[in-house]
Structure formats: C-alpha cells, structure tokens
Design a protein around this nucleic acid. Structure first.
Lengths: 225, 225
DNA sequence: TTGAGTAGTGAGTAATCACTCATTTTTTCC
DNA sequence: GGAAAAAATGAGTGATTACTCACTACTCAA
C-alpha cells in the first residue's frame, strides 16, 4: 500500500523522539499507525476504535490508556503536521531567502515548490486526514488559522512586497498575488497526486512543474507596454 | 443561517417537478432539506437518521419509507448536482460558444466564471457535501469521473484547441492549459467563499475577478519575443 | 528479591446506531 | 361517503459505539 510508507517514515521520527515525555512504546506507535491509516481511508467519524485496536494488534483498552478520547487520538496525529507545515517559513535560514539569497521570484517559487513537494510526499496521508476533518472541527480551524495561515501569510507578504518594490512583480495587492500563486501551486500538487502517480498516466512531472512556474511568472510579471 | 437559502431554492425546483415519479410529498422535502443541512454541518457518517427526522419534524420511519438506506438519502441529494454541473457544457447553446460567439479567450473565461458562480451560489451546501463525501465513496468517484470529468474535459479541450490554433493561446498541452486555468478559478471561488463573504472582509469581488482573469490570460498568452 | 509504578488487557457498560414492521392516519378516486 | 392505496408513525430490533475498570504482566531501582 502506498499509504503505509509515509506513515512509517513519519512514525519513525515520532518514536525516535529523545524527549522522554514524547517517547512512544511499540504498541502506542502501532496504534497511531493503524489509526492514521484507517482515518485516512474511512474518515474519522466512520473509524471505530475497535477496528483500530484490531489492526494495531492491541486490546481496545490500550488505546484509551494513551489517549483519553478518540478525538485526542486524532489530534495527536493531525496537530503536529501543522507546525511542520509552518517550520520552513519561520526558519531563520529560510528567512534569509528573501533578503539576498534568491534574486528572482521564479527561483524563489521553485524553491518553495520543491521544498513543499518533499514535505507532501512524506505526509500525504496525514495531510489528507487533516483536510478531510478540518470542516468538522472548529478547534482545528482555529488552530490552523492562528498557527499556519497567519504566520505563513505574514512571511509571504514580506517576500512579495520586496519583489514588487524591486519592480519584479505586477502592482496588485499582496493578498491577491499570493492567492493566485498559491492556488496555482495547489492545483499542480493536487492533480499530480490524483493523476500523476498512477500507472498509465501521461504526466511529465518536470515539464508540468516548469509550465506551472512559468505560468505564474508570466501572470505576475510587470506588463510591458 | 446562510446555508438555508440555497437549499430551499434548490428544493423548490425538486418539489415543483412535473414528472409525477419525481414528485415529493411535503414531508419528503423536509427530510431532504434537513438531511442536506446536517450532512453539510456534521458530515455523512456523523449525521444520525434520528437527528434528521427530528429536525425535519418527521418520524424516523418516514425516512426509510422514501429511502431504503441512509446512503440512498445521501445519493439522492448529491447525485443530481453532478448532472447540473455538466449541463451548461453539454448544452447545444453553450456548444455554439466556441464556434463563433466569443472571439477572445478571456471573454469566454468570464462567461464561464460568471455562469458557474451563479451555480455555486445556489448549490453551495450540496457541493460542500459532495466534496466532503467523495473521498469515502468509490461509486461517487466513479460517477463523477464518468459523468462530469470526461464530458467537461472533452468539451474544454475542443475550445482550448481552437483558441490555440487561432494563435490566441500559448503552445502547451490542452490538459495543462485547462489545469492551470481551472485551478486558478477554483482558488478564486474557494477564497471568495471562505473570506469574501464575511462581514469585516476587504474583498472587492469585481476587482478580484478581473485580476484573476487577467492573470490567467497573461499566463496563457503567446509570449511576445 | 522485592515492591512500586507503568503498560496492557478484555469483559462489561449504557448509549446510540440504522433499520423494521404492525398499526394508524391521510389521500385518492369512484 | 366509503373502500382501496399511499403516507406516516413510533415502539422495538440486534448490532455497534466510545469508553471504563478491575485485574494481570512487565520493568527497573533499591
């Protein structure tokens, strides 16, 4: 199964935590892995704790020894992904990006796209769970808005402002520029995930990626009169 | 509640059906309305038939007199929206569009965008249910792929091919052009739905719409060397 | 070796689930 | 107005739900 691998990869990190408070027993890790797989496949509401326990090879009571409620289990899987989503944007190192490292917007775009694609590959199923459950959990929405949206938007606004002031971007509100660029990138990522990685698909990834970046760049370039 | 209105509007059409086989009793209509509201708010799996019956002011047994299972009820709400999604694309009248009516791609884009925005306003909550449930119902996925995707894609490919041959679009695969244009439009629609119609939002709809169309046009125009 | 603390268990709980069906109410049509 | 048909009812069904708890198994420091 294609979903197993990224979960394992992500789990490995969780289990190798040095902080003893976050350290997991073997059975706890199997619970999280089983829950993640079943949540992704059936959705949170349709997933039963008994099925999770069975798939994890664990007694049902064991789940509730580690997580007070089923929702706690969901949050323990889904919440960490949010901070991991923001991480590259708040990193000092990434902050330098828009000061002097990249001198063209499309270089910057390509860096972001490549960085986030790697992230997606490792966190696909957990992100799927997150996207599926956000509409039904106001606390998740709130957390996402405060932790992710605000931070990332603030950082990106700074970048866009700088490029616009340098005459490398069209004169539109930063929010509009970000919306256009981000929705185009999300479209690329979603189509790629849906049709790009199937067997009989004709999807030249590098070509599509380049076309996407070029499209954004032409759309956001200062019009030459 | 903002969700009530579009449901009612859509229900009115259902109830005014002339085909006696599709005619609904008053109570059946109330069941569908209640189900749509609760499915949208809590998700299909978390919605209970008893709650639907209560909100509809109907005995629980009445639901199962009209719908064999809870899933049948879901499908009766969600399936019709798919054909309504395709309708404008297979309409004769719309077919003429790309023969001689519109002579520029951005005129065509604006027509599509305006047409589909009207559709969205009337079918918001049902579309929300559809998007939320598609991942968990393979039969819905299959139906969507066959009924919507194939038809709409085929039609759009013809349009794009014609505009490209007339030298009005960049030389990229039609599928790529469609992906870029559609994902940008979806981004506009989604952001508009999330942040555009709130109270304290600064969202100049006409300006954003024009910026979006312009962005697509610049991105897809033949590059002038 | 012992004892304290943690991890794991699985039968048991009340509540809720989708769905049934015998019965009653309403509508239809002559 | 009365009989046949259709619509609606709600108590009842067994299955399943998330979660509890008394108990056992294991780990590890003293």
């Amino acid at each position: 199964m294609t979903q197993q691998q990224p979960i394992d990869e992500w789990l490995k990190e969780l289990m190798q935590q040095d902080d003893p408070q976050l350290k997991m027993t073997d059975k706890q890790a199997r619970i999280v892995a089983a829950a993640a797989e079943i949540f992704a496949r059936k959705g949170f509401a349709a997933a039963s704790t008994s099925e999770i326990a069975q798939q994890a090879g664990v007694a049902e009571g064991t789940i509730f020894r580690h997580y007070r409620t089923k929702k706690d289990l969901l949050l323990s899987i889904v919440a960490p992904v949010m901070t991991r989503l923001v991480t590259p944007f708040v990193l000092r190192d990434f902050g330098r990006v828009f000061e002097d490292r990249y001198d063209s917007f499309d270089q910057f775009l390509r860096a972001v796209i490549e960085n986030r694609i790697l992230f997606l590959k490792k966190n696909m199923s957990i992100l799927k769970i997150f996207v599926q459950e956000v509409p039904f959990h106001p606390d998740l929405q709130e957390q996402f808005q405060k932790v992710v949206l605000k931070q990332v938007l603030a950082r990106m606004t700074v970048i866009v402002d700088r490029f616009r002031e340098d005459g490398m971007l069209i004169d539109l509100p930063s929010s509009t520029i970000i919306r256009l660029a981000v929705s185009t990138m999300i479209g690329y990522v979603v189509v790629r995930a849906l049709y790009g990685e199937k067997e009989g698909a004709e999807w030249d990834d590098e070509q599509e990626r380049q076309a996407t970046i070029d499209f954004i760049m032409r759309g956001l370039a200062v019009p030459t009169p």
